[in-house]
Design a protein around this nucleic acid. Sequence first.
DNA 1: GTGAAAGCGCTAACAC
DNA 2: GTGTTAGCGCTTTCAC
Lengths: 352, 352
Amino acid sequence: MRSVAERAGVSVATVSRAVNHLPTVNRKTARRIWQAISDLNYSPNKHARALVNGGSGLLGLIVPKSPDPFILELIHSFEEAAFGFGYGVLISSVGSDPEQISHAIRRMVDRNAEGLAAMIFDGPSTIMEELDRRSIPYVCIDREGRHPRGCLLQIDYFHGIRQGVQHLAILGHRRIGFASNHTQLFSTQSAVASFTKALSECGMDAQPSWIVLNQNSQKPETQDPETQDPNDRAIERLLAGKFPPTAVICSSASSAIQVMSAAARVEMKVPEDLSVIAFGDHLPAVHLPLTSILISPSEVARAAVDAIRNHGEAGTSPSRRVTIRPRLVLRSSTGFPRGSMKDLQPHVDQSW
Amino acid sequence: MRSVAERAGVSVATVSRAVNHLPTVNRKTARRIWQAISDLNYSPNKHARALVNGGSGLLGLIVPKSPDPFILELIHSFEEAAFGFGYGVLISSVGSDPEQISHAIRRMVDRNAEGLAAMIFDGPSTIMEELDRRSIPYVCIDREGRHPRGCLLQIDYFHGIRQGVQHLAILGHRRIGFASNHTQLFSTQSAVASFTKALSECGMDAQPSWIVLNQNSQKPETQDPETQDPNDRAIERLLAGKFPPTAVICSSASSAIQVMSAAARVEMKVPEDLSVIAFGDHLPAVHLPLTSILISPSEVARAAVDAIRNHGEAGTSPSRRVTIRPRLVLRSSTGFPRGSMKDLQPHVDQSW
DNA sequence: GTGAAAGCGCTAACAC
DNA sequence: GTGTTAGCGCTTTCAC
């Protein structure tokens, strides 16, 4: 910086003003300074800057250690949004061990992150307390409770599930089931509650035997695909039973895959014999192609960055909760139930 | 820090020494200081530290903006390895636009990253020059050339492809094809060359008509699954021809999916009528389940972090190239060709 | 073994 | 409109 000052024949203070675009700099001087800057390929030292005016220009992003492409897109969108406001992104991916999460938070706080986004769906509730203790704006996803310094991003599961149920109802389905193999991407109880509520809205009752929940929830990465999962058997029994559902809503893409392979084993075709909707959109869903209820990663990412930015801003009193609405994307795993309007085909969304 | 010093009844200099574990600190004094530190929940300001001794404790990680779960695992492993050495990770995900990449690099250099890992497979070659210009240790993946400051991580495609070819040869396949739909995950020419070489090692000749390369390479995220891809038609024609291959090696999981759906359309069963091997391991591969040639993301990540760390170390003259060997993981998309040893089944690797 | 003081690169308050 | 100066939190000589 000093060399820039010398080269432009001014003092470092003026250089600082020019760099920060303060209006109190003479046009000609400014031009000389910028010339010197580019000549010397100078760029200001962020650390010195951070030291003097507090902020580091860094945002922390904590994501679950999970093979879900949703996370990948979230990372990308977050970084993009953060960069748009001049922030850098410090990343950390964690398992569900509370201590690990706590460490990750501490590392980011230690690096003077100006905000933290904890995009972990299934982590322990202690995160929030941890975050509240530190004085740093933060945003959490898919959590309950009231929190002084944080903003909550809530997924409107009901909205999403309802879209799925209504789509099926309109197609003519009256026997709709629900399957979940793990609680990874959202709390299963919330989804089930939404499911029964949406069902009753459409004048249907949830049949308990059509709701297949896996108790021994396993993470996909530790799940051996060759092993016969007990959940698989349960689904197979349900479909092979004498009064099977004609459609199933699944809590995740991997759950949907389970259902579809169970269907294949009992000689049911999708969507002719069984319509399947997945909540969430892992890569396989695009290829299968699976009708899904999606949470937009970029929407989540932008909301997160916005929430962090709004936190500190004087004058604004931002709502401490932001609701994200999943949307239904029609692909070709849903159709009319057997026997009704065979020749009609539902509209398939080509825009995705 | 000053308050810690006061509380411990020493000067800031001594606190600094204690924090940095310098041996010239009295045991008792040190204990008092650490006590004060934990009482006050003090942690040193990284920026001040970075300001005075140059290093920032930050590593930059640049990844392609791509929905590939490989990248996700790479990010996780990189962060883990970096954290193991006390580094924080600055992330940026970029498209293939050279300018965007150049910006990302600049941002990280501006933040005083102590090293940079550019984990982009298909980016422009200008990255290397860009990186060479800045004086910062870096590591690039899957690239050619000699570079003063950088380390190259090379994927041994030949090793991987050879394993696939040999596996097929041992099963009894003599008519082996190759398909690629895009060059995203590795340079197609290198793969094709490896393919023909491995084939001739096994005493087979590469039949040009069995090598299907898509010229109009499209990124998966922009590819509409409903559209009939010209590549799809080419594969279909190949399989429906009078002299089809009995096995196909695909340059990516998505290419393998193309091949498998083409096979389904011409009523060929996998693996009975057609064995399929994918290079790379997108999520679908685990579910299908697809025999694949894998690059271990954690191996790549660790190699990258090691390369960066070794760069500066005095006394060591680290090799400027590290070779990563893909390994073959057997799942159930490969089998004996029709008519030979029908009743035998290949061993399927359950350990994955 | 410990303290005082200089200085890392920058910004902001204050003079001119 | 621009220069001077103090100080952000830390490390590191150099005395003691």
